[in-house]
Design a protein around this nucleic acid. Sequence first.
DNA 1: TGTTAATATGTTAACGATAACATATTAGAG
DNA 2: CTCTAATATGTTATCGTTAACATATTAACA
Lengths: 337, 337
Amino acid sequence: MKIKMSDVAKAAGVSLATVGRVLHNNGYVSEAKRKEIEQIIKETGYIPNKIAQGLKKSRSKIIGHLTLFNNNMQFKEISSAINMAASNSGYHVLTMTSHYGMGDEEQQLNDLIGHRVDGIIITSYHSISMELIGRLIEQNIPVVMIERTYEIPMVDRIVVNDHAISLNAVRHIVHKGHRRIAFIGAALEHQVETDRFTGYIDALNEAGIVPHEEWVNVMSEYSVEEGRKAIGILLNAKQPPTAIFMTSDIYACGVMQILYERGLRVPDDLSLIGYDNTLSALLSPPITSVGLPFKEIGEHALDLLIRRMNDNSALSRTIRIDPFLMDRHTVRNWHSE
Amino acid sequence: MKIKMSDVAKAAGVSLATVGRVLHNNGYVSEAKRKEIEQIIKETGYIPNKIAQGLKKSRSKIIGHLTLFNNNMQFKEISSAINMAASNSGYHVLTMTSHYGMGDEEQQLNDLIGHRVDGIIITSYHSISMELIGRLIEQNIPVVMIERTYEIPMVDRIVVNDHAISLNAVRHIVHKGHRRIAFIGAALEHQVETDRFTGYIDALNEAGIVPHEEWVNVMSEYSVEEGRKAIGILLNAKQPPTAIFMTSDIYACGVMQILYERGLRVPDDLSLIGYDNTLSALLSPPITSVGLPFKEIGEHALDLLIRRMNDNSALSRTIRIDPFLMDRHTVRNWHSE
DNA sequence: TGTTAATATGTTAACGATAACATATTAGAG
DNA sequence: CTCTAATATGTTATCGTTAACATATTAACA
């Protein structure tokens, strides 16, 4: 039912090799036969079987992407950027979404190995053991990690400068005169979160502000609900903050709901900065948020992967990505009383 | 570098067939050898090569999903539901995202055929020609279409009852006493949109309301910007509406921004119902929206696909999905003056 | 103690494409 | 008009796994 090379060869009265030469545009083929074979390929709609090619050439033209399931849109954006970049390079992506703390990553990596993916991109994984990564390296599978700060031999990485932009974002708040600045983040034991948090802390220190414990809210997950919970706590604090820096736009959604319910306005009553710049543009008002160049991240990830496929050197490359502050003026000037 | 069956066989001092019997748990194998082989498989971390299996068995264990790139979160949710369902059935998904009107679907389907996917799920496609679908059928590739209302032989489908729920949603508005009810939708020539629109029209007719042309806004795409544009037009109408029914939550985001800017409240000054129930819960206030059972849709799609793999009958099955109204009380009672 | 049935294991031809290695045929140089 | 090189085409082993088809050994029953 499905046309194969031998069908084309038979129809053209030539051997497999000649069809192959036409297909790959190499070797000698007479103009007449080339034309005829091309014609037959078109008529029959022959499409090369990538599975057979994969077996012969040990290249599946599929890459794996291991990512995290949660409400932080950042992960979905990165995923779609990778898909985009891959298809521009003739690859396709098998995306595996694992759930934090469920330990399903091992099975998913095994599935990817089973499918003999040509490489694996791992977004934001803390909980993948070195042993697991080691297994990939042993099998000569190129690995690129996104948002992994420490170096692993033979593993390339894309490091997002979360610390620097967080520092700048909070500095931005400080420069507007705020002194009571809160933080809302997630309790992932992950570099993404720790860098954002230390950026916040460093900006406060720099300004001679002693970080107040009741301003720091580390929530159990990314969700609107947790955002609501956090702002509830903050508004009831002895010293309520005048500005909040959040590590995900999803928190901002919850925060703004409570503000809305209480009739408080942004930034008049409270200044806000979100993170990932995905939902922030949808809110009323749209809020200032840290933007990540997703497209660039996806392209670099793919580029690193392909480079490593061709040259599996011991040194590991690092691409540093600088986020930007998408200013939507939701940090007001604050004149300290 | 990568362990294969023959390595396991050699290590165990047996033939390929015996290893195969252990792997597939069939045929006779002595208890001692079985134990030994299992041990070796574990030690060496042997993972069967799905590419070779695929070639031999003509089953790749990969399914394709063709979907649409836009801001309507509905498509992303369906996509992730399909991924979920697939992985529960031992399949993996190659997702192809095409851009409306770009005509890239043909290439993407060809890519999926090239990878010899075991089936294809097509979400929300108007612009795929019957000829293209026919090519898939000819090649014996099971196809399931989501949100395709007309029947195609050998193609199963999942039909979301957009018309009925839209009718109900607008009835809900009518029952609250509203007479001036606006519509915001997208100009996709697609069933999803036409059903939602006719549901709106039918509810108005039913209530003896003559649909006012200036209440109907058909926008060029799903976006916040188009939502803002639409509400701008509606607020300036001679007869501004008292309620709006929108075919996507993304429009609600834009609408609410303008309301916020003008100091108008929901539902006090304007009643709203969104669609897809993705962003509606994030807004301030969270708004009533038509909810789709994404998980169910994904599971049914996969179920249909797998059934057709096993029994390629001529009749095409149809699963009807009923959306629900997620009431968040953003339609107020309206007492006509 | 044969004879059959059950148990245990091995051999090999596919699956579809590729590419290394033939083998022709023709053309141009000397 | 040879002879080599360029041109044109064909044959076949291989990738890793499967499963149909051997073949061997043991057990059980008459």
